[in-house]
């Protein structure tokens, strides 16, 4: 049910994009919407991040995943249990670039007790990592549409990516990886009863949306070629704030563009904010040095406590009888 709703919604969006552009005035889909989407994305994301950043971190609560810093002769696991900013940086880098925590699953011993053994969620780690890295590379490659001259690192990325030199234009591996990884993540959500049970429509929506974008992109590149020069013209004109829509761009491109716009607008609202969010996660981005450096809670307030005086008042006689020292005789 959740799956169907999401699939239908994304399919409808694609169709709206493709044919909307032919029915409605082109500038709506080619100019107004992209600007609006970028604006929503940028402002939305900024607001979201500022909202998080505006909430204080009252206590220092890192999850420690290794030996603490204590006595000099005991070896600290600096990246699992950092005690200063530099080590935290290292830990964060591992988390963000390599999804360190997800990879913990792989450490479970893969003992062959009987027949085939599945690495717990090693696949999730591979799938997620492949998807994100491929996505990052795909984004970099897209820069060639928005820049003139194209910076060297973009050309280089593109060259490296297409090194297999299959087909014309050459198939980029990241495209394939992205699609496969997305399909795997989708498959996993559907096939694993546990994950299916916890999944919300939103989870499928995000996946279908990305699949739609990547799929339509690949289709344009390899099957129904679109007028890349025209697209670049459009993109550059948008970048330079002098929009003009060349003719002859295929509807599929507008479908692709429309989905991207939806993604941009959805990004700050939904769960995709996990990307920026992870940087702020207090269990990961703090050093476990509470006992060495005091952490201050900005909203700390006095609480009602039971003072020693009140305590002694209640028990004084008995304390004296038991030979315990008291403050007031």
């Amino acid at each position: 049910m959740n799956v169907l709703i999401s699939l239908v919604v994304v399919a409808c969006l694609l169709i709206v994009g493709m044919f909307g552009a032919t029915i409605a005035p082109q500038w709506i889909f080619a100019v107004a919407l992209p600007y609006a989407a970028v604006a929503v994305f940028a402002i939305g994301l900024a607001v979201r991040i500022m909202k998080w950043a505006g909430v204080p971190v009252p206590f220092r609560i890192p999850t420690t995943c290794g030996q603490q810093r204590s006595l000099p002769w005991i070896r600290q696991q600096k990246l699992e249990n950092p005690s200063n900013k530099l080590q935290v940086l290292g830990r964060m880098a591992l988390e963000i670039l390599f999804f360190r925590s997800l990879a913990r699953n792989t450490r479970t011993e893969l003992r062959k007790e009987r027949g085939l053994v599945y690495g717990t969620d090693l696949f999730l780690w591979i799938g997620a990592l492949a998807m994100h890295w491929a996505l990052a590379v795909v984004l970099i490659r897209h820069l060639r549409l928005f820049t003139d001259p194209v910076p060297a690192f973009v050309t280089f990325t593109e060259k490296a990516d297409g090194f297999l030199e299959i087909g014309l234009p050459p198939v980029n591996i990241t495209t394939v990886v992205l699609l496969c990884a997305l399909l795997y993540l989708l498959y996993r959500r559907l096939a694993n009863a546990r994950v299916r049970y916890i999944s919300l429509p939103e989870d499928y929506f995000a996946l279908f949306l990305l699949l739609g974008i990547a799929g339509s992109g690949a289709w344009m590149r390899h099957i129904s070629h679109t007028d890349v020069a025209g697209v670049k013209e459009l993109a550059l004109s948008l970048v330079h704030f002098s929009p003009m829509v060349p003719t002859g761009i295929s509807p599929l491109f507008f479908g692709h563009l429309f989905l991207v716009c939806v993604l941009l607008m959805y990004f700050p609202l939904g769960k995709l904010v996990h990307g920026p969010g992870v940087f702020l996660s207090p269990t990961r981005n703090m050093a476990n040095n509470n006992r060495a450096v005091r952490h201050v809670n900005p909203w700390d307030y006095p609480v009602k406590v039971h003072t020693y005086e009140e305590y002694e008042d209640e028990f004084r006689e008995k304390m004296i009888a038991a030979g315990l020292p008291v403050d007031k005789e």
């Binding site: 979201r48 999730l124 546990r194 916890i198 904010v273 996990h274 909203w299």
Partner: peptide, 21 residues
């Protein structure tokens, strides 16, 4: 408004299920 952990953890779970078992 007082705990960033709470706010953030409410927002960023992707329901990947890594924690589930």
């Amino acid at each position: 408004k007082r705990f960033r952990s709470f706010k953030l953890f409410m927002d960023i779970c992707v329901r990947c299920g890594a924690c589930a078992d």
